[in-house]
Design a binder for these strands. Structure first.
Lengths: 113, 113
DNA sequence: CGGGATCCATACCGATACTG
DNA sequence: CAGTATCGGTATGGATCCCG
């Protein structure tokens, strides 16, 4: 646990860090199978470039499955892998703590007034 | 959930990202009360600068408690806050998944040979 | 439709030197 | 002992334009 490389928490962290990665994962963890532009619409502020890059990384990490239909116009579908579904407990734990944190900070700023 | 700011997962993520933050948190989650240089020794490759910066951030986020003893030579003790202990489920979930991920990838490279 | 290529700003981090 | 100050490299992300 001395170095980041030796810490499994850091391994998990590397899978989900990136400005948009957690959001993408959240959308796919629903089980939805989404095309590229569907994902774009669901994540309004993301750029094409970042969506592509992050999806490629997630694919390489075996979290996201990418299926290309060779046709014109192109059609590409993204979905969570069985393996990627294992991230749900992690995302849930973080969501839960995130909610608690927002509450906690709200109270702190109140008591400071 | 459309923007990072609206996603509680991202809120939690922001608390623990940083190259050394998860490691620091792990060490303090044990309940140990540690002086600055004790932490440094336990995290050999961290620089003084990064340890300081990350501890300051964690303090601001109310995850770490910092107690200064006004004496010469200085003595400063760091410990996890009650509130910070709430991160344990998150860290545990990530650790668990990290272990699984390492195993998963090991099998993948094997089947590729 | 689903990208790729390029350029640019900044955020993050490491190395090093100095200090009350 | 527990920091601060400064500099400089690299990784990350955004903007924009182009393509089959």
């Amino acid at each position: 646990m001395k170095n980041p490389d030796q810490c499994q928490v850091v391994v998990a962290l590397d899978m989900i860090v990136g400005k948009w990665k957690p959001i993408i994962i959240q959308h796919l963890l629903t089980g939805d199978v989404l095309r590229f532009n569907e994902l774009r619409r669901r994540i309004p502020d993301i750029t094409q470039r970042m969506l592509t890059l992050h999806l490629r990384e997630l694919e390489e990490q075996d979290i996201v499955k990418r299926v290309v239909y060779p046709q014109i116009p192109p059609k590409v579908e993204y979905s969570i892998t069985e393996y990627g579904k294992g991230l749900k407990p992690v995302m849930d734990a973080m969501h839960y703590w995130g909610v608690a944190h927002v509450e906690h900070m709200k109270q702190k700023t109140q008591t400071q007034e």
